[in-house]
Structure formats: C-alpha cells, structure tokens
Simulated assay, not measured.
Amino acid sequence: MFALFRRADLAEVIGSALAAKAAGAGARVIAGRLGRPVETVRGWLRRFASRAEGIRRFFTVLLVDAGVDPAVPGPSRTLFADAVNAVVGAWWSVASRWPNVGKVSPWAVACAASGGILLAPSWPLETINTNRL
C-alpha cells in the first residue's frame, strides 16, 4: 500500500511533510518544498496532530511487538514529533525482523499498518489496547 485513503499524494510525500513538521518546519515552507498547496499540507498536519497520541501509542506497540531487539525512541520536544518518531521506529523494528520491508519507506509501512487510513477520520481506533500481556 503506497497511498492513504482519500489522499491524492503518495504516503512518502505526506510522510515527508509530517517529518518536516516534526523537525520544526511550518506549513508554508513544507508546501513550498513539496510543490503542494498550503491548505493541503496544513490539512495533513492538522489531522496528524489531532490524533498524534493515538498514532504514537499504536506505532510504539507495533515497534515493541515486531522488533527483534526494539529500542523505543525517547521523548521529543513535541507530541507531534513523538508520533513521527514512533512511526519511523516501528518501520525500523519491522525491517529488523523482515529485511525486505526495509526496502520501502517508513511511510509505506505506516500506510500498510493503518490499512491506508492513517489520516482518515476513523483512525486510530479509540479501543486500541496498548497493554502487553
């Protein structure tokens, strides 16, 4: 899966915008770099920010469950950056177990893990159980 539900851009394009925001860039700068409308980029950033805690939890659980020797990322300066780091960390853990996964971007893995609905209104589910047995 390489595209998110109801999004015209590939997961890598949206993911690069999310990573740039986590690094401190603003919507206008990101939109300029990507050649996308500011409102489109702002929409991606707002949707991700509105569910950053759920995304962080979901991908941290994936990181721990899939990793051979998982290393959970430490806290960042923002919850948004924590969520982006969890996505990248989950990709790293999945790729450590299944090396061919490392040939795709972290955002393609995030797209697949979320069923393509990473930025859809119905995800992440509020009932995600983050407790380990």
Rank of each mutant, 00 (worst) to 15 (best):
P37N: 08
P75G: 11
P37G: 07
G54I: 06
L18P: 04
V29N: 05
I14Y: 01
T40I: 06
L63H: 15
R51E: 07
G26K: 04
A49L: 07
A49K: 07
T60S: 14
P37T: 07
V72R: 15
G67H: 14
L18W: 00
R77W: 04
S50Q: 12
R36I: 00
V13A: 03
A71M: 11
G74W: 10
S16M: 12
L45D: 00
E53P: 00
V64Y: 07
V61C: 12
A23Q: 13
E12C: 13
D69I: 05
P70C: 09
V29M: 10
V72D: 11
A22V: 01
P73E: 13
V38M: 08
P70Q: 09
A17V: 01
V38P: 00
A22H: 05
S16E: 15
S50L: 07
L18C: 03
G24F: 06
A52T: 04
S76Y: 04
A17E: 00
F58Y: 15
I14F: 02
A19H: 02
T78E: 09
V72N: 11
E53T: 10
G24H: 05
R33N: 09
A52W: 03
V13P: 00
A66H: 14
K21N: 04
I55F: 08
T78V: 12
A66I: 05
A23P: 03
E53I: 02
R46L: 15
P37Q: 07
R28G: 04
A66C: 14
G35P: 01
I55D: 07
V68K: 10
R56I: 07
L62Y: 11
G74D: 14
A49P: 00
A22R: 05
E39G: 03
R51V: 14
P70K: 07
V64N: 11
A52M: 04
R47F: 06
G26A: 05
F58T: 14
K21G: 01
V68F: 02
V13E: 02
L18M: 02
A71F: 08
F58I: 08
L45W: 03
P37S: 08
P73F: 09
R51T: 10
L62D: 14
R51F: 01
K21W: 00
A22P: 03
A66K: 11
W44H: 04
L63C: 12
